[in-house]
């Protein structure tokens, strides 16, 4: 393997030109189109984009959770340089799940087994990967519940999920994900289904765990505020591709890709007039028949003939990549063109 010969240590997680296709009745849907990402040990990578852009599929592909009718149709996912997609490494890939890579899902109401006490659900990761006995696993589950901020863990360890609130369940999910002290946690919209106050608590918990345990986190979110608060780096996805990746401060200060600019524009601010919400006109392209050129062309104010050729992701600054032929060009100028109700009504 070249990675072994290389003096540079391979990154913790490397997603290399990964494509995922869903075979539907209407034809193959290309949910991911050559996505490349790198996660280094201990860092937090935000994965943002609107619904259907492929952020969750990316996380699930890393975890080997892409199910029929979906399949990995190209590219590779490497863990410390070793492929997880190669069927010969299936055992290796499975040994990582829950042990080296933990996952937190979006909806804590349905992501826990309703019939099993939470302590047993946490404990089975420990018996599976660390060879603990049931009694040891239970004792460790109590410690983990305490570590994720659940009070009275000794009594709560025997509760069933329906006896807990949404926030508490998400804490249980996090306890499960970090049970074996993994190197990476994939958090797929971990706060989307929660109340705003609980959201903040869960994000604080993730940040705290990361600092204490040095866990790398991939945070999938459509909420730019969540990403800004927690992440070191951000990758923006659109129509199954990564259109821009940058350090979090760089990205918010100077977005390179018109789509990123549009996303930042559309985030509501406190000083906005209450009836005005800014959007990006149009809708993402169908991935059943993805456009040949730039996926954002149809919605991009500055797109033209030059964008008909797929723009490769190229360096646009230190540690920054953008897939655009004219990065940093202000796509919307200064005026925030608004969709107001009258304009909507005329259409």
């Amino acid at each position: 393997m070249t990675a072994a010969l290389s003096p540079v240590e391979p990154p913790l997680l490397e997603i290399d030109a990964l494509s995922v296709t869903f075979d539907t009745r209407a034809g193959p849907v290309e949910a991911l189109r050559s996505v490349s990402l790198v996660v280094e040990a201990g860092e937090t990578l935000g994965l943002v984009g609107e619904s259907g852009c492929g952020k969750s599929v990316t996380a699930q592909a890393v975890m080997g959770l892409v199910d029929v009718p979906g399949r990995i149709s190209g590219g590779d996912v490497r863990w410390r340089g070793r492929s997880l997609v190669d069927p010969r490494n299936a055992r290796f890939a499975r040994s990582l799940r829950g042990r080296e890579i933990g996952m937190v899902f979006q909806d804590p109401m349905t992501s826990l087994n309703p019939l099993m006490p939470i302590g047993a659900q946490i404990g089975e990761v420990l018996t599976r990967h660390l060879g603990l006995t049931k009694a040891q696993a239970r004792a460790r589950a109590v410690d983990l519940l305490a570590a994720v901020g659940i009070g009275a863990p000794r009594t709560r360890v025997d509760l069933h999920p329906h006896e807990m609130s949404g926030g508490m369940r998400q804490r249980v999910m996090i306890a499960m994900a970090i049970a074996c002290e993994p190197a990476l946690v994939l958090a797929d919209e971990p706060t989307t289904a929660l109340d705003v106050t609980v959201q903040a608590q869960i994000l604080d918990l993730l940040a705290d765990l990361q600092q204490r345990l040095g866990i790398a986190i991939v945070l999938v979110s459509h909420d730019l505020g969540v990403v800004a608060g927690l992440c070191h780096r951000v990758a923006v996805m659109y129509a199954g591709q990564v259109v821009e990746s940058a350090g979090v401060e760089d990205l918010f200060a100077r977005p390179a890709h018109p789509y990123t600019q549009g996303l930042l524009r559309s985030a509501p601010r406190l000083d906005d007039a209450p009836e005005r919400l800014v959007g990006i006109e149009g809708a993402p392209p169908s991935l059943l028949d993805p456009p040949q050129g730039c996926g954002f062309l149809a919605r991009c104010p500055i797109g033209d003939a030059a964008c008909a050729v797929p723009p490769p992701a190229r360096p646009v600054g230190p540690g920054r990549l953008a897939a655009c032929v004219r990065p940093f060009t202000p796509a919307w100028g200064d005026d925030r063109s608004v969709i107001d109700e009258r304009a909507e009504a005329r259409r």
Partner: peptide, 22 residues
Amino acid sequence: AKPYVKTARAKGLSAGRVFGVH
């Protein structure tokens, strides 16, 4: 197809346990 089955798989449990226990 329910999310908790995905959770069980994400924990690296054997297919038998995901099926039989969960």
